[in-house]
Every structure is written in structure tokens, then in C-alpha cells.
Amino acid sequence: MPLKHSALAVVVMVIWGANFVVIDEGLADVPPLLFLSFRFVLVAFPLVFFIPRPTAGWRAVVAVGAFMSLGQFGLLYVALDLGMPSGLASLILQAHVIMTIVIAAVVLRESPTRRQAIGAAIGTIGLLVVVIAHDATAPVVPVLVMLGAALSWATGNVVARRAGVASGLSLVVWSALVVPVPALILSLVVDGPADVGRAVTHLSAVAVASTVYTAIGASLIGYGIWNSLLARHAASAVVPFVLLVPVVGILAAWLVQDEVPTVLELVGGAVMLLGVATATVTRTRRAEPISPSVPVESALPTR
């Protein structure tokens, strides 16, 4: 892949890695599910009036939006609101790669290669170390919610794979329509009309900037570049750049929020990323991963 395109891939990883801190900062003023609704309104409108509908059927588009956007990001926002460290969240979400391999093997009968199976095993061990290490210093509930976010993303990947949904900006935009209304209704039920009304009428500059960054930067610009790279190069050349997301996420959380993971969390994270790398970094197309070829945001991923 040319140096220019590699640089663009790195830029996207920086945008996505910093996204976790940006979301966390915005949640200080807005309930998580209401904030999610704001984000996907901006992702969908006004582009939905100008971008053609995906060639996939409505059921596939709705399913992708439900799992990849509503499920994944709804649980991510809730986990961050419950106190999940943003840097660690960027790491745990990468578990979706391992989960996708397992779910695809069960549901789609796609037998993983030996390399993918080894990578999934290594990644699972690393993930368990991270969970145990975090549980020793903080409540484990946010971690479990984050694992739910990764599972939702992985499920969406398999749904998209089964339906033959191609990665594209149209899918990101049209599947975003699934999110705003359910997220708003859930926020009204969970947070109450009074808190929702107060948040809407007292939006801070940080909340507005965070919404713009996550919607336009992470979703539209990030996936516009990402999808163009996947269209020009083999997935095996592009996908490994995703491993930079948790590195950027942890660094951004350290610089902005003074979040310092424990040594055991870092060790577990390193083992987990080694497993993900083993499963995804290949020299041939034959062992290309399923998940990262589908946008994170619609995705995405977003993820």
C-alpha cells in the first residue's frame, strides 16, 4: 500500500482512537442514550436525502443498524457513563474480532483457519487477564457492558456477512436511521423526561463539539476514508491498522483524562492485541477476517 494511503489509514485510527475520550467528555453533560440519539441524527441527516439507499434489503439494513450502531454504541455509551475508563474501553471493544470468528463458525459454518483459532485463543486469554485486573481495582459491571457492546458489534458483522451487505457510506448513513428514535425512547424511560428536557435545553459547548466530532469525524469522514482504502487494497493490507485504535485510545485517555491503566491491564491488553493480530494479520487473502471489512460505525464502528 502506498505511503500516502498508509498515512490516511493512520489518520483514521487516530480519529477513531480519540473518539472514546471525546464521547466520555461529552457524557458529562448529556445522558448516554440521549447523546447517542444526537449523534446518529447528525450521521443520518441531511445525507440520507442525497445518498442512494444501499442495495441490500431493508431487513439487512435495519439489522446492521440495530446491532452495529444501536447495540454497540448504546452499550458503549452506557459503559462509559457507568465509569468505564475510555482508554480501556477502546481496548476491550477489540474483542469483537474474536467474537466474530466464533459466531461465524457457529452460525455461518465458516471454519476458522488454524491461525485464526490460535489468535482467538490468545486474545481470549488476554481479555480474561484485563477483566480480572480491572475487577481488582474497580467495579466489573462496566466491563461486562463493554463486552456486550463488542458482542453486539460481532453479531452485526455476521448479520452483514450473511446478508452480503457491502461496506459503504450509504450503509453508514441509512442504517443510522435505526438509532435516534429507540435511543430517545430508552433515554426517556431510563433518565426521565425532566432530565432529558434539561439536557436538551442546556447543551454545553463540549457536548455539541463531542457530537459533531463523533458524527462527522468518526462516522462520516473516518468511514469515508476507510471504505475508500478497502476498495483500493486487499483487506489484509488495510485491516491490521485497526490494532492502532486501542493504542491511540489509551494514549489519548492518559493525556486528556490522566487515565493510567494498571500494569496487569496493560499486559492483558498486549496479549489480547497479539491474539487479534495473529487472527487478522495475514500475507494472503485466504485468511482475511470477517469483521473489520464491515464498517464499525454502521459498523460503525465504529466498531
Rank of each mutant, 00 (worst) to 15 (best):
A207I: 06
S86R: 03
A163W: 05
V260L: 01
S175T: 14
V178T: 12
G192M: 10
P295D: 08
A231W: 09
H134A: 07
Q94T: 06
L229N: 12
V296Y: 12
R115A: 15
V173G: 02
F35S: 07
V78P: 04
R283L: 15
G119E: 01
L266T: 11
L151A: 01
L147C: 00
V130A: 07
M99T: 11
R198F: 05
A133Y: 10
A277N: 11
A138C: 11
G268C: 11
G74K: 09
V247P: 00
V62I: 15
P112F: 14
Q116Y: 14
G269L: 06
P240E: 04
G83Y: 12
V10G: 10
G249F: 01
L8G: 03
A253K: 07
G268M: 05
P182C: 10
M99D: 01
P85S: 03
A56N: 05
S6H: 11
I51V: 08
I216Y: 10
A56M: 10
N227I: 15
L177Y: 15
I92M: 11
Q94I: 11
L243Y: 12
W16V: 05
V141S: 08
H5F: 13
I98Y: 09
V141G: 04
F40W: 06
A121V: 08
I125C: 13
A215D: 07
T201R: 10
R283F: 15
A63L: 05
I15D: 08
S69V: 13
S175A: 15
G17M: 09
Y213H: 06
V43L: 09
P139R: 12
V189Y: 05
L8F: 13
V14G: 00
L3E: 00
T284C: 11
A166L: 14
V165H: 04
D29G: 08
M84P: 02
M84H: 05
